[in-house]
């Protein structure tokens, strides 16, 4: 579904990503981890060609086609994106929740006013899945940070693309809502076979979600492989320059990571 072949990205003289190579099949779940400034968000944005400036080399393939062969609209039919900081409130789009979700149907709606029953259905489904139906008519700037983050997720779901890119999707959520969102993402991954690429600082997320992990440091790829294998292999230590303790969860028995 997605293949990165020795992809590098530079902005002016700063090399931000260097020789990134990985391959994900349809329905795969990838967690991208690494310290601040490692190039995680840049990698996600590169997959959507969101960088207007800067030079890239190597290649990215989506569905077997090179990225540059897609029009931006075609790309949006294939990849949906939940930006970082959906909950920060800085320059919140001037829409209510439902209007915001309707905008996500742009790649599927051919001309102004051609918003059809199918589009309405997708919007309602996304509202329902994220539990935002009751907030549909609330302006985005009156929502709490967590609610707004959910609205961004709902908007990406309304886009109805087979690939979902998530940049720290639970950073503004309290533990209960974070767990709900993670559960929803897991369900979508398993039942609808959405391919997911998630940038996260929560190191327990990859262990919980399973799938694959891509670890970055200073723009270089340290590790790409199964999530279970990051435990005790020194990968996190190398990525973050910090030591970690791995313990079995007293109830579930799953391994949890604690920074020392």
């Amino acid at each position: 579904m997605i293949r990165c072949a020795q992809f590098s990205f530079a902005f002016k003289t700063a090399l931000i990503l260097q020789d990134i190579s990985f391959r994900l099949e349809k329905g795969a779940c990838l967690s991208i981890i690494g310290p601040n400034g490692a190039g995680k968000s840049t990698l996600l944005k590169s997959l959507l060609r969101l960088h207007e400036y800067g030079q890239s080399s190597g290649a990215i393939f989506v569905g077997g086609r090179p990225l540059h062969a897609y029009s931006q609209r075609e790309l949006a039919k294939n990849i949906a994106y939940v930006p970082q900081g959906g909950g920060t409130g800085a320059l919140t789009p001037p829409f209510n929740v439902e209007e915001f979700l309707r905008l996500s149907r742009y790649p599927h709606v051919s001309r102004p006013g051609a918003f059809g029953a199918n589009d309405r259905e997708k919007v309602e489904k996304a509202l329902h899945l994220t539990g935002l139906t009751n907030l549909a008519s609330r302006p985005l700037n009156t929502l709490s940070g967590g609610e707004r983050q959910k609205a961004y997720l709902a908007a990406a779901l309304a886009q109805d693309a087979p690939v979902l890119l998530l940049d720290e999707p639970t950073s503004f959520l309290d533990p209960k809502h974070a767990s709900e969102v993670n559960q929803l993402l897991k369900t979508l991954n398993r039942e609808q076979h959405l391919t997911m690429l998630t940038v996260t600082h929560d190191l327990n997320h990859p262990l919980d979600a399973g799938g694959m992990v891509l670890a970055l440091r200073n723009g270089r790829q340290l590790y790409f492989g199964p999530a279970a294998d990051i435990v005790g292999q020194g990968i996190l230590e190398a990525a973050f320059g910090h030591s970690f303790t791995y313990l079995p969860h007293p109830r579930s028995g799953k391994t949890v990571v604690l920074p020392d």
Binding site: K45, L48, R49, L50, S71, Q72, R73, E74, L75, A76, K77, I79, A80, Y81, P83, L91, P93, P94, F95, F100, L103, S104, Y106, P107, V109, P112, Q159
Partner: peptide, 19 residues
């Protein structure tokens, strides 16, 4: 439609398919 999306920010508009 493109202008609606641009009022939500360029990055978001691009991610929704606006050239």
């Amino acid at each position: 439609p493109e202008l609606d999306l641009l009022s939500a920010g360029e990055e978001l508009a691009a991610s929704r398919g606006v050239a």
